[in-house]
Design a protein around this nucleic acid. Structure first.
Lengths: 193, 193, 193, 193
DNA sequence: GATGAATGAGAGTTCATTCAT
DNA sequence: GATGAATGAACTCTCATTCAT
C-alpha cells in the first residue's frame, strides 16, 4: 500500500507532467511543489524511475479497470464500447494530467522497465477490446466484414487522437460532452446494419 | 537551402531520435556520430532548438506534401485516402526515424516554437483530409451519416496508432504490407453502401 | 542572513576578483578555491549573478555605512569628510579586494541588475557627501564660491583615483598613511579662509 | 602604418566596447559588425590582444598628445590646465567609445602587456600634469600650500569621475558645456589668491 | 521522516584561434 | 584578402543521487 506521502508524490508528479510535460518532472520540481527537500523524496521512492513506474501503475489501474469492467459486464458489446469511451472521457476530464501520460511513450523510451509497463497496458487493453468486439460480432451486433483487431485499432486510435486534440486545445472544451458525437459516429461505423 | 553538413546533422538527429528517443538527441551525441566536435555543430545551426525546428520542418514537408498532393489530384476521394495511407506507410518504412517525430509532441512541449510547429502540421493535415472527405461525401462516394470531421479524426487516429504499434514492435514487420488490410478495413468503413 | 558557506563564497569571490580581476571569477575557480565542486556552489547561490549581487551588496554596505554614519554624526563638516577618507583608506587597506569592485562598473555592464546596483551606490554616496558639504557651507566651514555638487565630485574623484593608484602599485605602500597627506590637501582646498 | 582594414577594426572595436562594454568585444562581434568572417580578422591582427593593444595605443595617442601639447605650449599653467580639461571633454564628446577604454583597467588585468600599457599612459600624463602644476607654482599662479602631485591627483581624479558620470547617464548631456562649470571650480581651487 | 551539503556526469553554449582553400 | 569548417578549452548551469546528521 502507498503511504499518504507516496500518494502525494505521484499526484504532484502527474500535475508536473501535465503542466510542463515530462521534462518538467524533476526531483527538484517535485520537492518544491510538495514543500519538502529533494532527499526527502528518496525516503518514499528509491529512484525517479520508481516514481515513474508508480505513475504508470496508477494510469494502468485507471484504464485497465475501465476495460476489464466492461468486459465482464453483461449487456451488448456496443453498449460496452460506448461505456468505455464515455468513462475514459470522464476520467480524463477529471484528471487531465493522465492525458500526458497516455502519450508519453516516446519519453519513457530510455528506460526498458517503463517501456514494458506501457506496452503491457496498451496490449492488454487492445486485447480486451478485441475480445469485446469479437463477442459482439458473434452475437450479430457488430459488422463482421472487418476483423475485430482492426476495429479495435480504429477505435483506440480514434479515442487517443480525440483526447490528444483536447489536450492540444489546452483542455479548453468539455471532453465528455464533445465526445458524445464522436461516440455516436463510432457506433454507426461498427454496428451491423 | 541546406548545406550537406546541415543535411547530415538533421539526418543524424533523426537517427538518434529513432534509436534512443529525444533524450538521446544531444549535441554531444550528434557530434560523436558525425565525427566532429561539439562546437562544430554550432557552425551549422545556431542552437539545438534550431536543429529540432529543422527536423520538424523536414517532417512537415514529408507529410504535408503527401496530403496536399492527394488533395489536388483528380480521382475519387476514396482512392485519395487509400493513397494517403499507402504513401505514409512507405515513407515511414523507408525512414522509420520519422515515426519518432510524429509522436514527439509530448517532448517538444518545453519549447513553444516547437509546439506551434507541430500543431500547425497536425491541424493542416486534418483540414486537408476533412476537405477530401467532404468532397467525397458530396460526390456520393463516402457515407454522409457521419460528419467529415469525425471521419477525419477516425482515419488519422487509426493511422497514428497503427504506425505506433509498428514502432513498438521494433519495426519488426513490413508496415506497407500489413497496412494494406487496415486500409481495406477503413475503406469498407467509410464508403457509402 | 548569510550562511557561513555563503560568506565564504563571497569572500573567495572577492579574493578572486582581487587577484585576477573579474575574468578570474568563475564558478570553477570559486569551487576549487573553496574546495568543493562546482554544482555545490549552486546550493548556496542560484546563479553567478546572484553571487555578484551579493558581492556588490557587501560593498554597498561597507561604503554606505561609512557615508551615512558621517552624515548623522555631530561635528564639523570638515571633520566628517576627513573621517570619510580615513575610514575608506582603512577599509580598503584591510580588504584590498574591495578596491577591484569599486572600479568594476565597466565589467558589470553586461548585467543591467548589476549596473543598477552600482549606480545606486555611487549616486547615494554622492548625495550624502553633497549634503555634508552643503551643511558645511551653511555653517561657514566650507568655501561657498564653489557649488557643493562640484566639491563632491572633486572629493570622490580624488579618493577614487588615489585608491586606484594604490591598487596599480600592487598595494605596495601603506594606504592610510600615504592618504593622510592627501586628506590634508583636500581639507586645505575646501575650507573657507 | 595601419591599413584601412586595421583602422576599421580598431574603430569597430571601440564601438563595441562603447556599446556593450569590453565583454562585448569578441572576434565574432567584430567580424559581424565589419561584415567579414572571423578568420579574416586574423589577417589584420595576429590576436585579440594585439587588437586591444592597438585600441589602447589609439587612446594613448589621443590623450598623450593633449597632455604633451599643453606642456610645451607657452602660456600660463592655469590656462594649460583649462585647455587640458576642455579638450578632453571635446575628445570624449566626439568619440564616447574612448570613455569605456579609459576605465577598463579592471578588465585588461588578465594581460600584463595591457596593464603595462595602461599604467604607462596614466603615469605619463600624471607626470606631465605635475610638471605643469609645478611650473605654475614657481611662477606664482598656483597655490603652493599643496604639493603639485596631490593637485595632479585631484585634477585627474575629478576629470575621470566627471566623465564617468556622463557615461553612466548614457551620454545624455553635453559634456563640454556642463564641464565648463567644473573647470571653473577647479581653477578657483588651485589658483593662488 | 526530513534536512543541508555535496557530488559525478553531463547538458548547451561561447571563445579565440587554426588551417586548407 | 577572405572564406568555410573545425577545434580545445572553458563557461554557466541542471540532473539524479548520496550521506551524515
Amino acid at each position: 500500500m502507498k503511504t499518504s506521502r507516496q500518494k502525494e508524490i505521484i499526484e504532484v508528479a502527474l500535475e508536473l507532467i501535465s503542466e510542463k510535460g515530462i521534462q518538467g518532472l524533476t526531483i527538484k520540481n517535485l520537492a518544491i511543489k510538495i514543500g519538502i527537500t529533494e532527499p526527502a523524496i528518496y525516503r518514499h521512492y528509491d529512484s525517479k524511475i520508481d516514481i515513474l513506474i508508480a505513475v504508470l501503475d496508477l494510469f494502468k489501474q485507471n484504464t485497465e479497470q475501465l476495460f476489464e469492467k466492461e468486459l465482464n459486464n453483461d449487456g451488448k458489446a456496443i453498449d460496452k464500447i460506448e461505456h468505455l469511451f464515455t468513462k475514459h472521457f470522464i476520467t480524463f476530464s477529471a484528471t487531465p494530467s493522465l492525458v500526458s501520460v497516455i502519450f508519453s511513450e516516446e519519453i519513457f523510451r530510455s528506460e526498458p522497465v517503463l517501456i514494458d509497463k506501457i506496452s503491457e497496458v496498451i496490449d492488454k487493453n487492445d486485447k480486451i477490446l478485441t475480445t469485446i468486439i469479437s463477442n459482439g460480432q458473434k452475437t450479430g451486433e457488430i459488422r463482421t466484414d472487418i476483423e475485430a483487431k482492426y476495429l479495435s485499432t480504429i477505435i483506440i486510435g480514434t479515442l487517443r487522437l480525440f483526447v490528444k486534440k483536447w489536450q492540444f486545445s489546452a483542455y479548453s472544451y468539455n471532453l465528455p460532452k464533445e465526445g458524445k458525437k464522436l461516440i455516436e459516429s463510432i457506433k454507426f461505423l461498427i454496428i451491423k446494419q
